[in-house]
Write a protein that binds this DNA or RNA. Structure first.
Lengths: 144, 144
DNA sequence: CTCCGTGCAAATGGTTTGCATCTTA
DNA sequence: TAAGATGCAAACCATTTGCACGGAG
């Protein structure tokens, strides 16, 4: 999504266009690493040193409200934000917290089938798979 | 799981047997409604009025540690606790917060297939489907 | 000119921790 | 009697809120 499209989406939904909003949206919507609010804040500050955490949270709320962002809350870890709102699996390393998105035709087909079997109209989903990534396995091995 | 089995599991894992632990575990492990810590606390207090929230949290941590319980953290809502650790879908109403478990052979088969396609060794998973339940739809309709 | 957005500071609240006392094994 | 569990009170900390000022439309 380019800046024009973004601005249209915001206008359509009755939001005003501000430099802070544009900056935050651009960074969040293009970041596939599932950053937390603090990391987003740090990244924004490089170009907008005067920005506040409050505005970051407000803007994330706005994107969630528009359905353009999913917040993933975890145990003993700040929330992570995911601009991928299509059906996909979050593959999450329990060691270092890295998250990869996974999707495929197989996943979409099988998931659709499961949903139709349930017979309810979903308004969203969250699919997490927890693993220990290769790096973390290596480190665990060294610690012994 | 009956009380004897529970006590064995605790002993195997090196935990001491206390009346508080037994009471909390029995209530949590048999409650399919995905209660939060406060609700568990209230239920325990009926039989053990002197129990503390600290002990409830400690015991929940212990059960998580043993892999007998999953904590589901949500946005703007306290954590919910789920004793069903097998592959299943949490069907969650975004209106009232009710959670139903769903599982079937189809789900297990298709999920296994997806996991083998990913080619990673999972140590757990969380499958959420968000809906608006019939009661909440009714209420939304009345509000208009 | 009005309404909404920004950002500082303070509040919130579920969860965690420190510590003295008590219980289990 | 040693190691671990309990429970009170205080701390924690990511997130939310109140409010005065500023900028968009």
């Amino acid at each position: 999504m380019n800046e024009e499209q973004l601005i249209s989406r915001l206008r359509e939904n009755g939001y005003k266009i501000t430099p802070q909003r544009i900056a935050i949206c651009k960074i969040v919507l293009s970041n596939e690493k599932h950053p937390n609010a603090e990391q987003i804040f740090e990244e924004i500050k490089r170009k907008h040193p005067a920005i506040s955490m409050t505005t970051v949270y407000h803007t994330l709320d706005m994107l969630k409200e528009m359905g353009m962002l999913t917040e993933l809350r975890f145990n003993s870890q700040p929330s992570r934000f995911d601009p991928n709102t299509s059906v996909h699996i979050n593959i999450i390393c329990k060691g270092c917290g890295v998250i990869w998105d996974y999707s495929s035709d197989t996943l979409r087909n099988k998931w659709n089938h499961i949903i139709s079997e349930i017979g309810k109209q979903p308004i969203g989903q969250r699919l997490d798979v927890y693993i220990i990534c290769d790096d973390c396995k290596k480190n665990l091995h060294q610690e012994k």
